[in-house]
Structures are given as structure tokens and as C-alpha cells.
Nucleic acid binder design. Sequence first.
DNA 1: TCAATTGCTTAGACAATCAAGATACATGTC
DNA 2: GACATGTATCTTGATTGTCTAAGCAATTGA
Lengths: 166, 166
Amino acid sequence: MSDKSERQGYWYGLESRKQIGAVDVLNALRDYRAAEAEMRRRTRASMGMGETDLVALRYLLEAERAGRDVGPKELAVRLGVTSASMTSLVDRLVRSGYVTREPHPTDRRALILRPTPGSDQEVRSTLGDMHARMMEAAETLSSEDSAVVVEFLRRMRKAIDGIAVS
Amino acid sequence: MSDKSERQGYWYGLESRKQIGAVDVLNALRDYRAAEAEMRRRTRASMGMGETDLVALRYLLEAERAGRDVGPKELAVRLGVTSASMTSLVDRLVRSGYVTREPHPTDRRALILRPTPGSDQEVRSTLGDMHARMMEAAETLSSEDSAVVVEFLRRMRKAIDGIAVS
DNA sequence: TCAATTGCTTAGACAATCAAGATACATGTC
DNA sequence: GACATGTATCTTGATTGTCTAAGCAATTGA
């Protein structure tokens, strides 16, 4: 399991070079991606709940605290999954007792998702922890460095977005 | 479909602020992730092949060019998937005619995966294109900026890795 | 009024996972 | 050498979570 973190290391002897180049950046990006996938797997294993479910639940809790009603549609858009996936995601959350489906007061097609009392606890103790760590890491960046990172990610996104044609 | 790229925008009015902070960084990271997922979906749609399959095939081609034999095990470790997933991945590649399974000369448990002639073309025209764009984007970073990005990604990875406990 | 749109669900396919099984190799002990 | 135990490689089967496509019911608006 722990070999995953190091598995790129031998490709380019990072230690022996002073200059950090494009290849190192892409490798770092790949490593980050792998860590993320691994985290998702662990989360699922440790608490029988995928990361997407967790993020969804947290979003519902935040909305509830702000006094805002949220339905499957908004949640699906926010999380970037299809409405079909959202249906089964909500199924899971309902089955596990974290949320309830309630009818929308005026639109009879729509639903309102309401987190059950006690869900809060569960979420806070897992995802919140990680999010705090990530925020902490991001906060150590100076404003200039933040700009560099944001710009880099933006460019990477552009590079990836432009592959549609073929 | 295009709403995905912008869907965070309204949260924090980026335009109205000069300072770029931690929240912006995390948002950029999330956007990048979404773009990546979208790319994977598109790739699958446009050439009936998932990104993982493509990366696997490219790795095999690279290894072939270097005169190195690669089996499912090494490939699975390299790509960060389980050996079970690798079995079905190889099944797909064989079924599509991109690689063949050949017996290992000395170890009768093991296999050697050999890309068929012509696979090269297919890979080069899709993934290579994107990879080139990403490399290009990474190369515009100065050495100092590269270091910043790499360090940031490394910290993010650490933040994510440390969530195992619970 | 009636066609288009919206919100949610269902059905079917696919790629990944885990758990368990079948061979084959490796190593120690007799 | 022969045999037992352990480890490694690959496969299979069941489950999970995602997707697309198609469908139904309610709403909007021309």
C-alpha cells in the first residue's frame, strides 16, 4: 500500500538535481492524483461511504445551517455528477439514514433533501479533518505563490479541455 | 456540459479581489479535477477506450521501444490499479486487438504483454496530444515557480495521505 | 391548448473494487 | 533429493458506483 507514494521516484533522480522542471511538475501532479484516488478508496473502506456521498452530505449540512433548501438537481450540478447518479447517491444516503426526501412545497416534481439530526457528527469527524489539513497546506502559500499555483492549474485545465476534437 | 467549467465562479467574486488566497487555490484544484474527469468521459466516448487503458497501452509501447518486457503485475503497480482490475483491462486490450498475451519464458505464472503493430498510431493521436499540451503548459513555469507548484502538490498529497486513521 | 422543458427515476452497460481460488515458484527442513 | 509451507501471478465472481439513454410526471410558455 505504501509503495504507491514512492513509485515514481526512480524515474528521475530528484535528489541529484537542483533544477526542477516540467517533468517533475507533471510527476507531482500524477502523484497527487494517485493519493486522491487512494484516499477515496480508504474512506469507502473505513466508513462504508464514498467520498462523493460525504461531500454531498456536507453540502446539505452547510445549506441547512444557512437555512437554504437543496434538492437533488442542485446537488448534482454542484458535485458534477449526473442526475441519474444523484438518484442512487440519495438512495444510499436515505438508506443509511443520513437524509430524508421531502416533497417540494410548490413544485410537485421536485424534492428537498433534509439531513437528519446527528449526520453532522459523522461528517465532521472524517472529511472535515482532511479539508482542514488541505486548507492549512494552502494557507502556507504566499499570495504570489498562490497566484502561481492557481495559474498553473488553470492552464492544465485548459490543456485537458482542449482534447475534445479528434 | 460547459457549465462544469464555471460552476464555482459565483462563490467568491474572483474579479473583485486582488489577493489570491487559500480558498482560491482549493477551488482551482477542484476545477482541475473536474476537467480531468470530464476528459476521461470524453475519451471513452470518442474512441471506446478509457483513459486507464490508453495510459496502459502507452506504457507498453514505451517499454517495447526500450526493449523491456512488461507483465500485468508491473503495469498494475505502475498504474495504481489492483491486479484484478488489470486482468479485465488486459482482457479489453486483447479483445480490441491492441496487445497480445504471451507466456513468460522462464516463469510459467507470469505473462508478457506485447503491443501489436499499429497500436502506436492510435495512442499517439489522442493521448499524446494532450500530454504535449500539458507538458507545454508545465514548461512555461520558471524553475522557481515549478518548485512552488511541486511543493504545493506534495503538501496536498501529505494532507490527503494522513486521513487513514479514524 | 399543446409542445418543449424540467426534475427525478429506471434500466442496462462498464470499469473498478474485494475476496477467494488455481497454478507456479521459492525456501527451509528432513 | 523430496516435501511442506509460504509467497507470487493471474483469474473468477459478486458488488459498487458511475455513466448514457429512455421514460414519466409536472411545469412553462408560445
